[in-house]
């Protein structure tokens, strides 16, 4: 019996040694260059060695394009290559920023740019506020014991899986002149409404559709935060006879605050970048009432026959500065949270 066990043990060991052979071979092959690199850069320098491939990819696809974009913003003309373009210094920025009254886009040299800045600002404030509140409400509801909880979570998360273009198209079909919404309303005796051709309605729907599309993602982050709150805190509060609202303000909200901050900042960044679903849904109209900064950049740099790449690049750099600010804010918040947790 013991012989059989011994044989089986020997077979298992030779099988595992066969399975690990390729890895051992690979390690053997890598050993020489890694030893060389370690001798060359020292143990301290190995971190940089491991980061180098990622930095290379980051440089090729992010840093260099950003640098080229900045270089374009300092040039004028309609040519694509730098050889045929002319250095204009900060001329493009000056064109964008020339304005008698920044609160009235029609007084600006590039009125479309300032209109898009106003629209984006309004969109960001309205969309982020409503999105965060609705996401929080949704997460609170989904966190409760209920029937088919998994199904309801799926329902709210499903739109996140759709491509923004599909989201835009679906809602366009619902909201157009002969769309589903008008058909239903007219069945109930209401007048036909041009949801996407009325200025106030178009912005409302751009915000609504964007919230519908992203709600599930943010609700999921908040739900994870809610589930991390220890149950015993609620049990203790219940035993003390604390009311629901007080429990929410004193326990749920303070402990959910770090997640909520991340949600607010991510939503802010995403809202500033709004383009695809809004472009498909409203095309920036009616007039320019839902034209956002990204659409202005696209129109200026790509949609016109004479492509004004310099102006488009300058606008994108200005937008990039805003996004960097928001990202720094997010990093600051995350770091503060990490430090607090460490303490």
């Amino acid at each position: 019996m013991s012989t059989i066990t011994g044989e089986r043990g020997g077979q298992a060991s030779s099988l595992s040694s066969m399975l690990t052979l390729p890895f051992r071979f690979l390690m053997g092959v890598l050993n020489a260059p890694m030893s060389f690199l370690q001798r060359r850069f020292g143990i301290g320098g190995m971190g940089a060695v491991f980061l180098a491939p990622n930095m290379l990819i980051f440089s090729v696809f992010v840093l260099i394009p950003v640098a080229i974009n900045f270089a374009y913003s300092l040039t004028g003309g309609t040519a694509i290559f730098f050889d045929d373009r002319h250095f204009v210094g900060l001329g493009q920025y000056q064109t964008l920023l020339t304005c008698s009254d920044y609160t009235t886009p029609s007084t600006c040299l590039q009125d479309a740019f300032w209109q898009s800045v106003h629209n984006t600002a309004f969109f960001v404030i309205a969309q982020v506020t409503v999105l965060v509140l609705v996401s929080l409400g949704t997460a609170l509801v989904l966190n409760r014991e209920m029937r088919a909880r998994g199904f309801w979570r799926g329902v709210f998360f499903f739109p996140v899986l759709l491509s923004p273009v599909v989201v835009g198209l679906i809602w366009k079909w619902i909201l157009q002149r002969d769309g589903l919404l008008n058909a239903i309303l007219m069945d109930f005796g209401f007048e036909r409404t041009l949801w996407l051709a009325e200025r106030s309605w178009a912005m409302f729907w751009a915000i609504f559709v964007s919230i519908w599309a992203h709600l599930g993602f943010y609700a999921l982050i908040l739900l994870a935060g809610l589930q991390a709150i220890p149950r015993d805190l609620y049990e203790a509060a219940m035993m003390d006879g604390t009311g629901r609202m007080r429990t929410f303000w004193r326990i749920t909200l303070p402990l959910l605050w770090p997640n909520l901050l991340v949600v607010i900042i991510l939503a802010l960044i995403k809202a500033v970048q709004i383009f695809d679903e809004a472009f498909v849904l409203t095309g920036g109209g009616p007039g320019t009432s839902t034209m956002f900064i990204t659409q202005y950049i696209y129109e200026t740099g790509f949609a016109h026959v004479l492509r004004n790449l310099g102006l488009a690049s300058a606008a994108s750099i200005l937008m990039g500065i805003v996004l960097v600010g928001l990202t720094a804010l997010q990093l600051g918040v995350s770091n503060r949270r990490a430090r607090k947790e460490a303490v």
């Binding site: 157009q176 095309g283 007039g287 129109e299 949609a303």
Partner: peptide
């Protein structure tokens, strides 16, 4: 209105 006024740019 929704054709000429419906979109931007």
């Amino acid at each position: 209105r929704e054709i000429w006024g419906g979109v931007a740019g």
